[in-house]
Amino acid sequence: MRYCGLFLVLGLVAAMGISRAADLPPRESYQRPADIPSPPSNPLTIEKVTLGKTLFFDPRLSRDGAMSCATCHSPNMRWSDGRVLPLKADGVPNARRTPTVLNSAWLNALMWDGRAASLEAQAVLPITTAHEMNFEMPLLLDRLKEVAGYQPLFTQAFGDAEITPKRVTQALASFQRTLVSKTAPFDRWVAGDENAISENAKRGFALFEGKANCVSCHKSWRFTEDAFHDIGLESLDPGRGAKVPSQLVLMQHAFKTPSLRDLPKNGPFMHDGSMHSLEEVIKHYEQGGVQRESLSQEMKPFELSDVERAYLIDFIHTLDGGPLDMEFPNLPE
């Protein structure tokens, strides 16, 4: 009998622990994948990645030889450019912020409006877009053929030194597939390390899945469901609406849900770079955005206290695995 009190106390403590654990949403759906996917038509090889990395950092891929892919997708800027709008976007109607290329191996629709269905298809777009690298593929191939140092790289990657548009885009896509977010505190918590994130961040996670319902769009280990939504920004940019049949009302002003991993500290955020703090972003969702026919049905206003908003931000910070640094390649001559 003398132990009854002790058992009772232990039982209560255990029950409290179970109850607290049960308050948090399950973590399984956030587990990182073990492997990087690649399409059967372009399997990942070290040789293609090496070539792709060289091409990615080579400014000779642009007409004036001054801009490489890495100019706007810089390792130092979380593989974006940290700008509200990209370089050379002045005067371009509906210009959009440069998205990160991290974790793009898992994307099935690329660009803010989803107009590219694969990394291979996407790779050609910045090269040939007038306000970006502004080049033409035939001219680019001619230029690369003049660089003797590229021949062994193409040979190692594809078996011979022939330079074709397909090989260029396959190599670029292969390199980009290897750009994967580093393990973040949240990942360690998902893996079972209870102390990897703070109690406040755990409360933020509960809000993320609960009252704020961010999870309705920011799902999976990448914190995006790769879908398109009009989130009610003031921007007049039609987004995906310009790429799909006009009767698809919900796609007007709709843009791809970005990942929440490795966000830059002060933004810019949103497709138009219009917000500069996570607090501003969360308040936008609380208010529900511009009410219009195309507004996503997931946009349901809610209210957070200042403390709750801070919890949510603490949680989002746990998705940051730190910069994915990379040594710049030696460009072939």
Partner: peptide, 8 residues
């Protein structure tokens, strides 16, 4: 799906 391109 136009909205969720992962659906196929």
């Amino acid at each position: 799906c136009w909205i969720h391109t992962v659906i196929r």
